[in-house]
């Protein structure tokens, strides 16, 4: 090792130690617990249990059937997380775009408005939504006052989705905004100059260039929302048991090895999903044009 590299290593030492203690060691323990039983003997049982455990469920029509417990829970978590992420993207992209094109002052104000909820405790935000969405809550009070029928939202999947979208929305807006704010306005002018109307400019220039921001936003929303647990208990009135709830339940029940196994599987699936997403969106950047010179 030459002197230069040794110096670099010395400067980075605190961060290396930090990363080791707070990232590598916990991951190692999660994996260790996932593959051991209560007396710390190596086993695959926890992993197989996740895929094979079954239970009886009775649907609204009263028909009872046997299902793979954790796969059903996982599928439900995935569905809600994907819907929430998609909604965050649909709502967040236009907002990020408007923000990036606004005046400096307006940008600052919008940024603060987006950040303020993040300063409040997560539990309090969730309780606030309970008050709003309850059958006799603020929303229904408003609806009846203007002569509309009240809606039953609390305890439905919609309520859980509303809660998740609200909580994770800033994590979608900010990465997209940071990309769009840096976008050279001359590129937009150039596209107009070459014959694009506003929609074509969006399609052909702004969207393709904001893909990295969109990917970051999706990552930052999808991952916490797939493993969320508290929102589903409160806004879903406990009717939508999610994978995060299952992990929490197993930990609370002191069943650490199975909880670790679920967390481990979830992590592997998420990593694979993100890798796939990245692969699909990074199209061969300079693809060959048909009949081009070699």
């Amino acid at each position: 090792m030459n002197g230069e590299r040794r110096r670099t290593a010395a400067v980075l030492a605190p961060y290396t130690v930090w990363a080791a203690i707070f990232i590598v060691v916990p991951l190692f323990f999660v994996a260790y617990y996932a593959f051991t039983d209560n007396s710390f003997n190596f086993t695959f049982d926890n992993i197989t249990r996740f895929f094979t455990a079954t239970s009886q469920v009775t649907n609204d029509a009263g028909v009872t059937s046997e299902v793979r417990t954790y796969l059903v829970i996982f599928w439900r978590s995935l569905k809600l997380a994907v819907i929430s992420t998609a909604l965050c993207l649909l709502l967040g992209y236009p907002l990020a775009y408007i923000m990036s094109r606004a005046g400096a002052r307006a940008q600052k104000i919008m940024m603060i408005l987006i950040m303020i909820p993040m300063w409040m405790n997560f539990l309090i935000r969730t309780y606030a939504w309970m008050t709003i969405l309850q059958d006799t809550g603020i929303l229904n009070g408003f609806l009846t006052s203007i002569g509309l029928k009240p809606l039953h939202i609390i305890g439905t999947e919609s309520a859980v989705i509303v809660g998740m979208v609200y909580d994770y929305f800033p994590y979608m807006v900010l990465p997209i905004y940071s990309i769009l704010a840096k976008l050279d306005t001359k590129l937009i002018e150039a596209a107009h100059d070459l014959g694009c109307n506003s929609i074509q400019v969006l399609q052909k220039v702004i969207l393709p260039l904001s893909v990295p921001g969109i990917l970051n936003g999706i990552t930052m929303v999808l991952i916490p929302s797939i493993s969320t647990f508290y929102i589903s208990q409160k806004l879903g009135s406990g009717r939508f048991f999610l994978i995060g709830d299952a992990i929490e339940g197993q930990y609370v029940a002191n069943n650490l090895h199975f909880a670790a196994a679920m967390a481990f599987i979830l992590m592997i699936i998420l990593l694979a999903a993100m890798a796939l997403l990245k692969y699909l969106t990074s199209r061969p950047r300079f693809k060959t044009v048909k009949g081009a010179a070699k």
């Binding site: 050279d184 001359k186 590129l187 002018e189 150039a190 100059d193 694009c196 260039l209 950047r285 081009a292």
Partner: peptide, 23 residues
Amino acid sequence: PPHKRQVNTVFQKYALFPHLNVY
């Protein structure tokens, strides 16, 4: 508007689209 004029511009710092190749 610019996209309906028979005029094209070469911008000061070129403003080439970074996500596209030369062709």
